[in-house]
Design a protein around this nucleic acid. Structure first.
Lengths: 206, 206
DNA sequence: ATGTTATTTAATAACTCTATTAATACGATA
DNA sequence: TATCGTATTAATAGAGTTATTAAATAACAT
């Protein structure tokens, strides 16, 4: 068992924990396991983070922010609404592509642990309001121009979320069932990126 | 602690376990907890099902079948393709409405436990093939009639799955964040049933 | 070199969980 | 009523978990 002299041990533990939590969720991951993955003694995990819960929270909150990030960045633009929307959808898609296990973690913890949901409520409740109201305004303008049908920002967001999230949530399952090669899998994913954009744009037509 | 003389204890245990597994997943539910919920001794749980794993499997496989059921029933029809598709989407939606925790259980277990996925692979792999090929045929016919654009049955299924599943997966979260009343929540759900059908039908237009 | 602080480890307390075992209650049947 | 199989329970072994503590070691400034 080597000492972690050079690297920041706290960071190494954090990363090992992140990987394991994403793979197996909170309950199925033990601090012993995290320590082993980080190449350190189990007590060190507690030395740096005191409890498993606190360690998880440090990771979860950061990940939560990543998860909703694309909806927050405002693309102040001279490009068309359709282009802006496409960019949003694809930004969300790409983020999930780089963090494919993220939806699992988020849903798993928010659904099984009511406390977690409660504690995040305060922090997250603000986001939808500010973001949605901006998109709402955008949508209203387009509706008046007659370029799209009337639809709530919430419904639109939920549709984007649904199409993008479920793809990455189910991808490992379909991949396994269909015995896809890396290449097939990549094609499948990229095909879906296009498909999702098409579905959403079409759903808005007047 | 009363004896469970009258009712079929095995069934009572099964139902208690089902409820708890759906709420909190496999790892977070203990046999002790199941026994308490079933009003019996913890050893009885093992007496009837030997292991927690076997108990779970008995429930999971049944639930898995429920989950994919709507895609399996063939509506041999004289009604139009659009109507048939609408019925399929709504049947799937209604099933999820009655089993809102089901997607959580299925994803949670298939994703965290590779063994589970492997063991189901054999049983489930057949289904997509038979079902998809039938829908594929339907789609091809419609494409030739010029009523829809070319699309794979798999993509269509994934879209339906995405829209319906994510709604029920995220519903408790949005409900909590937005402090929805029962009535608001019901409206929200019913509105989405319509919305999901619209999105999918529109996505198929030529 | 030496004292001081930060990091790391081994050991272990205190639980909790699964699974098994041995003993007991129940109910039908001979 | 004596007997037998099924249902049920208390007790507990055994493994694994989190968290704490005290001791050892490394790092570093003086």
């Amino acid at each position: 068992m080597k000492h972690q002299v050079d690297a920041n041990t706290e960071q190494v533990i954090l990363e090992a924990a992140e990987k394991l939590f994403l793979e197996k969720g909170f309950a199925m991951t033990s601090t012993t396991e995290i320590a082993k993955a980080a190449g350190c003694n189990q007590a060190l995990v507690h030395y740096y983070f005191r409890t498993k819960e606190k360690l998880f929270e440090a990771i979860f909150e950061k990940k939560m922010r990543t998860f909703v990030a694309p909806f927050l960045q405002n693309s102040d633009n001279n490009i068309s609404f359709e282009e802006r929307l496409t960019q949003l959808i694809e930004a969300h898609f790409d983020l999930l592509k780089e963090n494919p296990k993220l939806p699992f973690l988020v849903f798993n913890e928010l659904l099984t642990n009511p406390t977690r949901l409660e504690s995040l409520k305060g922090k997250l409740a603000v986001i939808p309001q500010t973001v949605l109201s901006k998109i709402e305004k955008d949508l209203k303008a387009e509706v008046e121009k007659g370029t799209i049908r009337p639809i709530s920002a919430f419904d639109l967001m939920l549709t984007i979320l649904s199409l993008n999230v479920t793809l990455f949530l189910t991808a490992p399952i379909f991949r396994s069932i269909n015995n896809m090669s890396d290449e097939n899998f990549d094609n499948f994913i990229e095909n879906r990126r296009r498909e999702n954009v098409i579905i959403i744009l079409r759903s808005l037509k007047p």
